[in-house]
Design a protein around this nucleic acid. Structure first.
Lengths: 226, 226
DNA sequence: TTAAAATGATAGTATCACTATCATAAAAAA
DNA sequence: TTTTTTATGATAGTGATACTATCATTTTAA
C-alpha cells in the first residue's frame, strides 16, 4: 500500500502554495538539501535559484524570504510528526507504552517509506535539529505566533502533555515537560555529535543512550508523586 | 566593598582586546543594548558604529564579525555565571542546597552590584536567553569548539554535573541533565514570555513556577534510584 | 621627544535581499 | 479550439550588508 499524506499548511507561510506546482515542489525539495548542506545562514535564494535553474524572482513568488521558507519546512516536519504520533499511538492502550513510543519517534529519523513526494527526510531531520529554534528565536515571535505559524509545534506539545497527564494527572508541569522533551531530543542529539562533553553519550553516534536519557528524564518526573 | 571582577577571555574571540581601550568597552556596552533591542539578525556593525560615533572599520578592528561579538558576549556571561556559582556555593555544605542555589542563579538576572564596568546585565541576560543558541547552532561548531570558544559553557556544565554526581553518584546522566537544565532555564523563560502555551506558567511574568519546574525536573531525576 | 599604537575618514567591492517590468509559455475556461 | 488566465523566464535595478584597504591624525607609551 502506498499512502500519500497531504498536510494542509498554514497559508501565511507562503505567497503561493509550493505543493501546487512543479517549481514549488522543487523549491522545497532542493532547499532542504541546500540548507542541510551549508547551514541556514549561508543559504541564499540566489544559490537555490541556480540549483534548480530558475531565478531569485521565481522563488520570491513562493516565499516571502528565507526565514519563512525555514518556518515552512520545520512546520511541515512538526505536522508530520504529530500525525505519526497519533497514528502510532492509536493502537496502544497502556499510557506508559504510548509515551515510550513518542520518545522513540522523536529521537530518530522518519521512515522514508511514507514519502511519495521525494523529500529527503534525513536531511529535513538534520535541519530540524540544527535550525528549528531559529524559527522562533527572533524579534517577531509574537507576530508570527499570532499568524499561527507555530501552531503545529504547539499542538504536538499539547498532545504529548496530554499523554503525561493521562499517565499521572497529578503531575503539575505537563506542558513544560513536553517542550523540554521536544527540545532536548534534538539538543542532546546535536550535542552528542558536536559538543559531546555536554552529554554522557560519548561520541558514539548511537542514539540508544540518548533515548534512555530521555526516558529517564520523562518518567522520573511524571512518576514522581504518583 | 567594591570588587571588580576581571574575566580573562579567550583570545580567539577578538582581534584586539575590547577591555583594553575605551572604544573597545564602548563596543561591548553598546552592542549589548542594541542586540537586545533589535535582535541579533537586525543588528549590524554599521548601526553600532553610528551609535558610538565611530566607523564600521573601527569595530572590525576589535571583532572579526558580529557572530564573534555575540560569542564574546555570551561567553562572558557564562564565565561570570560560573564564577557566581563557585562563589555562592562555596559556603554551602549540603549538596541539595548547592543545587538549589545554582537553579536560582540560573533563573534570574544577575545583580547589578557586581558591575564596575557599567554593563547592562539585564539586557545581557535577555540576549543569552534569546540568542545564545545561535552561538553554536552553525556549520562551524566544530571549528569554533576546537578554538575553545565554548569552553566556559562546557566548564559550567561540567561543574553543575559534578554537583549532581555529588548528590547521587549513581545517577547515570549528570552532564546531559546539566545541559538540559542550562538550556531549559532559558527556553522555558522565553516560552513563558512569548509562547506561553508551551509551558504551565501562564503568562504571569513570575519566575516562581519556572523555578519550581526546574527543581522538580532536576531532583526527580537525581533522586531516582538513590 | 620620539616612536608606536589606536583612531578617524573615506572609498571601494562582492553579495544579499528584495522589487519591478515585460515577454513568453503553459494550463484552464470559454 | 480559441481565448483568457496564470505561471515562468529573463533581465535590471536598488539599497543594505559584510567586509577590506588606505592614509592622515591623534593618543599613548617608551
Amino acid at each position: 500500500m502506498e499512502l500519500l499524506i497531504r498536510i494542509k499548511m498554514n497559508e501565511n507561510l507562503f505567497l503561493r502554495d509550493p505543493e501546487s506546482t512543479e517549481l514549488g515542489r522543487k523549491i522545497v525539495r532542493q532547499s532542504i538539501l541546500l540548507i542541510q548542506e551549508m547551514g541556514f545562514e549561508d543559504f541564499t535564494f540566489k544559490k537555490l535559484a541556480v540549483a534548480i535553474h530558475t531565478t531569485e524572482a521565481g522563488i520570491y513568488r513562493y516565499f516571502e524570504n528565507k526565514h519563512r521558507l525555514l518556518v515552512y519546512l520545520v512546520t511541515w516536519y512538526w505536522n508530520l510528526l504529530e500525525y505519526q504520533v497519533l497514528f502510532q499511538i492509536n493502537n496502544l492502550t497502556d499510557s506508559e507504552l504510548r509515551i515510550r513510543k513518542v520518545i522513540e519517534l522523536l529521537s530518530r529519523e522518519m521512515e522514508e517509506s511514507l514519502s511519495g513526494n521525494d523529500i529527503d527526510y534525513k536531511a529535513l531531520y538534520q535541519i530540524v535539529i540544527a535550525e528549528s529554534n531559529k524559527v522562533y528565536l527572533t524579534k517577531d515571535v509574537e507576530a508570527n505566533n499570532k499568524a499561527q505559524l507555530f501552531k503545529p509545534y504547539k499542538d504536538l506539545c499539547a498532545r504529548i502533555a496530554d499523554l503525561f497527564t493521562e499517565f499521572n494527572p497529578g503531575y503539575p508541569f505537563p506542558r513544560s515537560l513536553a517542550s523540554t522533551l521536544l527540545e532536548m531530543a534534538h539538543f542532546q542529539y546535536f550535542f552528542m555529535n558536536h559538543l559531546p562533553s555536554l552529554t554522557d553519550f560519548g561520541k558514539e553516534k548511537d542514539t540508544t543512550k540518548l533515548h534512555e536519557f530521555l526516558e529517564v528524564l520523562v518518567f522520573s518526573n511524571i512518576r514522581n508523586g504518583k
